[in-house]
Design a protein around this nucleic acid. Structure first.
Length: 824
RNA sequence: GCUAGGGUACCCAAGCGGUCAAAGGGGCAGGACUUAAGAUCCUGUGGCUUAGUGCCUUCCGGGGUUCGAAUCCUCGCCCUAGCACCA
């Protein structure tokens, strides 16, 4: 066996691809485009590991396949370079974030190239480049003009470790998304927001159009956006009208109390003098409980002293402040119907508030005194005046109608989605292009002054570093020219990644964010690959941006990606997620040296379905390694000859199977089909040059380097990667051969079986095999092949051969498709 | 609790109404090669039976639909991920 220097071959072809710019994409309206994109990485000093390689290989295989299929493929890569981890790492290493980032990116590029990915490097973008984030600022200004970027004071999530605020999407169970042990604090601060809620309805409804997105991601987004239909009912409290949102207007007659969120900004307006102390005591108490206890927290509240008037019944009902009401959903107050809502029920029981049944189930009768839990099922209304005996589901509509007619309520749609908090009090982000002037207020920076670059004269330490830069903060007001202060908040890094896919289509444009023609040619992204963890962050934000830029007249489409693919996660040999912190990281460099990158690529995709989590194992990769070595051996001794019709049938069938499995992202099946074909080739030995080339083409997307190398060895001058994908000649596919293969394999099993029996009985291993086949089947049984597979000397006779050796007269047992066998 | 997805032979994993005792890989066993080991190659790998075309029991468990189920329905149990007091 020849020793192969994989690393050398890999570097050779990586360099050639790059030198000849084979993967450079050019917009060409006459050609059908295909845009493959992987979520770009956040460059860190740790570099890439095989988990990343797996992710990128998925896209690369598809890009190479589509390119060979004749599509105009764009497959770019870039770096999401701004953000907190880089800043923190830089501070720790005592270098500037920019230097840290540059160094990391350099390493990432090197590693990306070493995996053999067919990126168009001319299109690379780096979000920390002012020429990139300039357009982030430009988008901000457009949003500002439309009232979609605005400032407001509100209770925001503050991570004490990050020293900055977080978006709702970045808070998991009350913890920071980057610090799972750090409780997020609630602080009232003036912050910048993007009004993503303006698009809530469209974002929700269009999920339906994402036919090629995974169901779970869509479900998560639906849940996150949280659309619900309901009614706002006007309750009067202390002369003020409070529109209370409910999805259950059918229970309006059963309201016995109200609960306002303890976090509500206007809570104190409702609290009466007499109850002030009590309420304050309560607030103090709920603030002092730790997050952990909050999870199991009982519903608690305190009477505010005020009463609300039920607009339908005119009842005077007490208003409580409670710990279980969300402050910024609806209007932060709920109407409570203890008989038919479990939370309200628990609360009412605890504070001895009356329970009024307004829905009676059909099978039995509820008694308010004896209920042990709320009845949340359906039934007919009772105690509801003119609506009595109405089926509650019908009553929802009827009562809504009734409220609307009397102008004391209206049908509305509520969303859980909140506006996107984009302010960050950190350095390594896009500066917000706003100047604060005492006279003119928040004034946008004129577009021609963009980009507002990050200053260098800053100090890291406590608080926002941008505030330490004199050159940055003190400016003139663009409107009145008076002294003013520049906004020192930077934008969330998710801003940068919300539109990067568009910039790839025209990455060097200095006049415009991108040329719409180009963007509309290449986009939407045909295949977008990345992790599930972005379901409710990036994947919502970039849909939002797409819709906004469409409304700005820049785009003609409404959804950024046609197909979304979530790859599984690669685990280390210890079955844990591959990551630096577990110390189970496998590096591409090591793998390339040890097995060759092609081997690793093949191994990763053949382990399981691409969307499943997989495990790296040095044992497991042996299977791929053996195959690759055999292929290389075969080609190094290859002499073209004529391909048998049997093999030709198999080749053509495999073309269909491999193509189909690639299209369906079943690369594991592709790998098996390729393996099976190669084994057939090895068995037959005779192969024409044309077919030898077809095999390499089928293998190429998976193993790009060695296929280029072997392709060249066959005497080809042009790259295999720009060849046409083989077309199957279906006329050559003959199922007869497959049946024959089956017969052949059965025969081998039979020989082994009989051999075993003889060995058991006679304690002697038979060495010779005689096969008696009916003449029609004769072509199936190749003596040489049989001998090799059985490890015995095999002789084949036709049953009607007069001179055959058949001492026990077995030949007569032969049937079509099943030869007779004699062993000795 | 809700939502999405799973539970397949020693392990990983494909299959998703008949061609299924169930692809492929790993492991293990036997054989070939070799002085031997390793590497490589071939074969086997649910059970029973027999000089081979046979039978039995399997695809988390129970029930069902069907001429026929690993595959469809239903009820459980278990796992994985995400969300979680949204009125």
């Amino acid at each position: 066996m020849t020793a192969v220097n994989f690393k050398k071959i890999e570097e050779k072809w990586q360099k050639k691809w790059e030198d000849k710019k084979v993967f450079q994409a050019k917009a060409n309206p006459k050609k059908k485009k295909f845009y493959v994109l992987e979520m770009f990485p956040y460059p860190s000093a740790y570099g890439l590991h095989m988990g990343h390689a797996f992710n990128y290989t998925i896209g690369d295989i598809f890009a190479r396949y589509k390119r060979m299929k004749g599509f105009n493929v764009m497959y770019p890569m870039g770096y999401d370079a701004l953000g907190l981890p880089a800043e923190n790492a830089a501070i720790k290493a005592k270098i500037h974030p920019e230097d840290y980032t540059k160094k990391s990116i350099k390493n990432f590029i090197k590693q990306h190239k070493s995996i053999g990915l067919s990126y168009d490097w001319e299109r690379m973008i780096v979000t920390s480049d002012p020429e990139y984030y300039k357009w982030d600022q430009w988008i901000f200004l457009q949003m500002f003009k439309k009232g979609l970027a605005y400032q407001k004071k509100s209770s925001v999530n503050w991570c004490p470790k990050c020293q900055t605020v977080l978006a709702n999407e970045q808070v998991y169970n009350g913890k920071c998304w980057r610090h799972e042990n750090t409780n997020v604090e609630i602080k009232p601060l003036k912050q910048w927001f993007f009004k993503i809620t303006k698009y809530a309805n469209e974002l929700y409804n269009d999920i339906e159009k994402l036919k090629k997105w995974p169901e779970d991601i869509k479900a998560m987004q639906r849940h996150w956006i949280g659309k619900s239909h309901g009614v706002e009912i006007d309750f009067k409290i202390k002369e003020k009208t409070w529109p209370i949102f409910t999805t259950r207007p059918d229970t309006i007659y059963g309201v016995t109390f109200m609960v306002i969120s303890a976090q509500h900004p206007d809570l104190m307006d409702i609290v009466t003098e007499k109850h002030k102390k009590n309420v304050e005591k309560f607030l103090k108490k709920i603030h002092s409980v730790s997050e952990k206890q909050k999870e199991e927290l009982e519903k608690e509240g305190v009477f505010t002293g005020s009463y609300a008037e039920n607009p339908v019944t005119g009842d005077r009902i007490p208003v409580y402040a409670g710990n279980f009401v969300v402050a910024d959903y609806g209007c932060g107050m709920v109407m409570a119907v203890p008989a038919h809502d479990q939370r309200d029920f628990e609360f009412a029981k605890k504070y001895n508030i009356p329970i009024k049944v307004v829905i009676q189930p059909e099978m039995y009768e509820l008694n308010a005194e004896r209920m042990s839990r709320a009845y949340t099922g359906d039934g007919n209304l009772v105690n509801s005046k003119e609506f009595n005996a109405t089926w509650n589901r019908d009553a929802i509509d009827e009562i809504a109608e009734y409220l609307e007619k009397r102008k004391i309520g209206r049908r509305v749609i509520q969303f859980k989605l909140r506006d996107w908090l984009i302010s960050r009090q950190r350095y390594w982000g896009t500066p917000i292009p706003i100047i604060h002037c005492e006279k003119c207020g928040a004034v946008p920076v004129p577009e021609k002054e963009l980009p507002i670059k990050l200053p260098k004269d800053i100090k890291f330490g406590k608080g926002n570093p941008l505030e330490t830069s004199k050159s940055f903060a003190n400016v003139k007001c663009p409107k009145c020219k008076g002294p003013a202060k520049r906004e020192t908040d930077t934008m969330d890094t998710f801003v940068n990644s919300s539109w990067y896919f568009l910039r790839y289509t025209d990455p060097k444009n200095s006049k415009k964010i991108f040329d719409s023609k180009k963007a509309n040619y290449w986009c939407p992204v045909d295949l977008y690959i990345g992790g599930r963890e972005h379901a409710c962050m990036h994947l919502i934000y970039f849909r939002f941006y797409t819709k906004f830029l469409r409304d700005q007249g820049l785009l003609k489409f409404s959804e950024p990606a046609i197909k979304l693919f979530n790859q599984g996660m690669l685990h280390g040999p210890d079955k844990r997620k591959m990551s630096k912190s577990w110390g189970n990281v496998i590096l591409p460099e090591t793998v390339s040296k040890k097995y060759g990158m092609d081997t690793a690529r093949l191994f990763l995709i053949s382990l399981a379905s691409l969307d499943k989590d997989i495990e790296w194992s040095d044992k497991g990769i042996q299977g791929s390694k053996k195959l690759i070595n055999r292929i290389i051996d075969f080609y190094s001794e290859f002499n073209p000859s004529k391909t048998s019709p049997r093999l030709e049938s198999k080749i053509n069938k495999t073309i269909l199977e491999v193509s189909e499995s690639i299209e369906n992202f079943k690369y594991n099946i592709s790998a098996i089909k390729i393996r099976e074909l190669f084994e057939a080739i090895e068995d037959e030995k005779n192969l024409s040059k044309k077919h030898a080339e077809i095999f390499l083409k089928l293998l190429h997307p998976f193993c790009p380097h060695i296929t280029e190398e072997l392709w060249e060895k066959l005497g080809n001058k042009k790259f295999i990667t720009i060849q046409n994908w083989p077309e199957a000649d279906t006329k050559k596919i003959n199922e007869k051969f497959e049946q024959q293969d089956k017969i052949f394999e059965n025969t081998i099993s039979d020989i082994a079986e009989i051999s075993k029996i003889i060995k058991d009985k006679k304690k002697k291993e038979p060495k010779k095999v005689f096969i008696y086949a009916i003449p029609k089947d004769l072509e199936i049984f190749n003596e040489e092949k049989l001998s090799k597979k059985t490890g015995k000397k095999v002789k084949v006779f036709a049953v009607n051969d007069k001179k055959k050796y058949d001492p026990e007269n077995k030949a007569k047992k032969a049937k079509p498709g099943r030869p007779a066998i004699y062993l000795e």
